[in-house]
Each structure stands twice: as structure tokens, then as C-alpha cells.
């Protein structure tokens, strides 16, 4: 196993390349899905605020 990771003495170069690819290709979709969740949360909040504003407006109209 350690022979495999040594890559004939070139392990540092091979794994630095593979590592960078792995880190960026995992990080990109993770960050995108976090951003997606945040966007959904913000829109929900915006909708709730709008709904409560409409509610108060209709109540003032009635009174």
C-alpha cells in the first residue's frame, strides 16, 4: 500500500495534483448547495414578510 502511495518516489507530485482536483471538485458542489439552501431560506422569509404585510393592510382596510 505504501508503495502505491510512494508512486516510485513521485508521490508528492502525483498526490498534490490529485488532491487539488479532489478538493476543488468536492468544494464546488458543496458550496453551491449551501448557497441554494440560503437562497430558498431568504425567499421564504421574503414571502412571509410580504404575506404579513398584506394581512395588516387588509385588516386596516376593514377597520
Amino acid at each position: 500500500m505504501s508503495e502505491f502511495f510512494a508512486m516510485g518516489g513521485y508521490g508528492f507530485y502525483v498526490w498534490c495534483s490529485m488532491g487539488a482536483v479532489a478538493v476543488l471538485m468536492i468544494l464546488e458542489p458543496v458550496l453551491l448547495s449551501i448557497k441554494h439552501r440560503q437562497l430558498i431560506k431568504n425567499i421564504k422569509r421574503q414571502n412571509r414578510r410580504q404575506a404579513s404585510r398584506e394581512n395588516t393592510a387588509s385588516q386596516t382596510e376593514k377597520s
Binding site: E28, P29, L32, S33, K35, H36, L39, I40, N42, I43, Q46
Partner: peptide, 17 residues
């Protein structure tokens, strides 16, 4: 394809909120 679609969906939500 996957990440571009993910980012497009985020852009859609941002612009069409």
C-alpha cells in the same frame, strides 16, 4: 453538467425571486 445546472438554478432563484 451537474455543477453548471446547480449554479444556473441558483442564478434563476436569485434573479427571479
Amino acid at each position: 453538467f451537474a455543477v453548471i445546472l446547480m449554479r444556473t438554478r441558483n442564478i434563476i432563484l436569485q434573479r427571479e425571486r
